[in-house]
Write a protein that binds this DNA or RNA. Sequence first.
DNA 1: TCAAAAGTGTTCCGAATACACCCATGC
DNA 2: GCATGGGTGTATTCGGAACACTTTTGA
Lengths: 241, 241
Amino acid sequence: MEAIDTYNLTKNQDIFREYLQFGLSVDCVVFGYQQGQIKVLLVERDMEPFKGNWALIGDLVHPKEDLRESASRVLTSLTGLTNIFMEQFHTFGTQDRHPIGRVVTVGYYSLVRSKDYHPIASSWAKSTKWVNIHELPELAFDHDNILTKGVETLKKSVRRRPVGFELLPTKFTLLELQALYEAILGYKFDKPNFRKKILAMDLLVPLEEMQSNVSHRPARLYKFDLARYEGLKKQGFVFEL
Amino acid sequence: MEAIDTYNLTKNQDIFREYLQFGLSVDCVVFGYQQGQIKVLLVERDMEPFKGNWALIGDLVHPKEDLRESASRVLTSLTGLTNIFMEQFHTFGTQDRHPIGRVVTVGYYSLVRSKDYHPIASSWAKSTKWVNIHELPELAFDHDNILTKGVETLKKSVRRRPVGFELLPTKFTLLELQALYEAILGYKFDKPNFRKKILAMDLLVPLEEMQSNVSHRPARLYKFDLARYEGLKKQGFVFEL
DNA sequence: TCAAAAGTGTTCCGAATACACCCATGC
DNA sequence: GCATGGGTGTATTCGGAACACTTTTGA
């Protein structure tokens, strides 16, 4: 097969037009943390194809819109939240992934604090729900694929970057943090060792505030020191585990 | 701004057509290792726009072609090589990245053994060359961006996965391997410790063969045991450093 | 006083680091 | 012999794993 010049088609608009036939969308794997479980936000489709099926939230990219902007719009329009952690992880572009035409989709994953989230009614979603990532219904299109890859990405990045903090309320106890990591990674940590390690990084600020109304010794609350993290990162520090 | 239903436009082909206006391309950051340096393969553009500028190798994705397939085709058509290591790393889609229209590009990076590589004449490339990643000429389009991100990706993945082996000839000495890692990461390793660590992983097979015609004690040659690596990986082993 | 979780300290082990040193070859 | 890189051994340090123990609250 002969290669087509990637970038010079001015002189041959016909060929160019032939190649300008792709649809582009973004799909977001939105993670939340509830009842000790990592969950993902799904929407129920209200139209064909895949009517009644559950799907990731996503939309076609507008012609005058950057990718990230588009993903951000999708998230905001459905959750009402702005400034959400969001990162591109993979692009899916097999020919047959969309029944209507050639649509390539860019996958983003994002992390939201469940308490901040209040779903917004939308023309394109019948309903939404949070689903445990191990108890998924069948998903529309190739969204199973996308979701699987998104979960893999989360698992990898969570040990290398303090993304875990995005899922908790701003004030949290060390055991809550530990439980979050355990939920994502699927294995247990030793409590004393986890504490030591995480505190040794000096990224957490102990607050005066304590838990209340718990039938056991109340735990100290901490918050994440983002500014300090940014500073350390510049000096070559890498968060790990 | 109102969200458009991502996936159901059957009933509204006009709107759908409006959104099916994207061009899609792949660009490959091809790494090679020569004279102790990590280099990247560039082509000199022979047409406008950016005529005379250097660029990454890439092409528009054909309508009936998967993404990976497309990247593979680009590589093979230019290098004659098949079965090259190749991995998607990021998708670039700002509106203005291509002067002719809205073209989104998917970035792949790949690793080739320089000795195997023999450039193939092509209609779309005037000439090609290997360039040290720290002495780059100005690049066409947003290829500087893409390249920077590709180098970052290589640096990250090289410590976590034995990608380094793809760049060396099949038989190599431990110091060659060490030098490769040093070139990629930009810092030195302690020789005894590097040896111990890499040998302890049990991924290298010592060969009977030795270096010859060197004016010092000849080093033993090793080869990478891919089968063993795949096996260990299944048992949860992670290559590191 | 008891359950339940918060929180601390200590020991042990293995891996990473830092070196010092010897070996084989070409010239 | 000597320069050059190949290759080995060891002492030390540091961080992680394991685990025992004390503390504080509500009921």
